[in-house]
Write a protein that binds this DNA or RNA. Structure first.
Lengths: 118, 118
DNA sequence: GCCGCAATTAACCAACTGGTTAAATACAAA
DNA sequence: TTTGTATTTAACCAGTTGGTTAATTGCGGC
């Protein structure tokens, strides 16, 4: 998968409206007007968001008479999560370090502490 | 964590230069010029990227004389991964469906198949 | 204090984004 | 064929983004 595809996925996810659309799609297919309903925004705006989502591969669209039902496509999300996953050890390590820090702090509460600001 | 913070993280990750910077930081602290070196881009451009990364909480910066060493902060990555994680079952299901499909396909290779387009 | 290096800020620019309104298209039903 | 509903496209606009060059700041060494 091209690096550019990853950029498209992340930038699609960067908008809260689009994330909310994905959340609503996670419980099943929705038409455009159904998706638009909770937002204080015109239909063309939603249509644009859907085009971005489609362009990133995060949704696909069918046809049912005049409706264009949208469904979520989770594969790109897996790609995104896999990319971020390479840093898993970093946040786990920093949680470890927080743990160490808290333990040190506890130790110091028994003995008088040395300064440690900044 | 505010929803806006998540937007900032995703939009920081949406740029390939910034993702590559994060990759290079994953092996340890780097100064700005060190980070800039592999890119065909001026220093102010890198400086802007770093500001975006810092604004999203993905890096923090120290001070060492005239250097401003950058280090990765993985906590926001965990937030991002946690958000995406709510869709894990979707991509696992679609892999399952792929599996089903392949099994059906295999079954049909023994019997003559019925049409299944659309 | 002055020089040199690291990095940021300022000012600018073209391209992209996220929204709007108005017009066009696609399809079903009457 | 006309009408109504769902959706997209076109044209426009303001704000943001990602880059540039030129100037500025911060700091150590002489």
């Amino acid at each position: 998968m091209s690096p550019d595809r990853l950029s498209k996925v992340f930038s699609a996810l960067a908008d809260p409206t689009r994330r909310e659309i994905l959340v609503r799609l996670s419980t099943g297919e929705r038409s455009v007007t159904e998706l638009a309903e909770p937002f204080d925004m015109t239909l063309p705006a939603i249509s644009k968001h859907l085009r971005v989502l489609e362009g990133s591969g995060l949704i696909s669209r069918g046809r049912d008479a005049q409706w264009r039902p949208c469904r979520i496509q989770a594969a790109p999300l897996k790609e995104a999560v896999d990319w971020i996953g390479q840093y898993r050890r970093h946040w786990e390590e920093s949680l470890d370090r927080l743990d160490d820090y808290l333990q040190q702090l506890q130790a110091k509460q028994r003995k008088p502490a040395k300064s440690h600001d900044k």
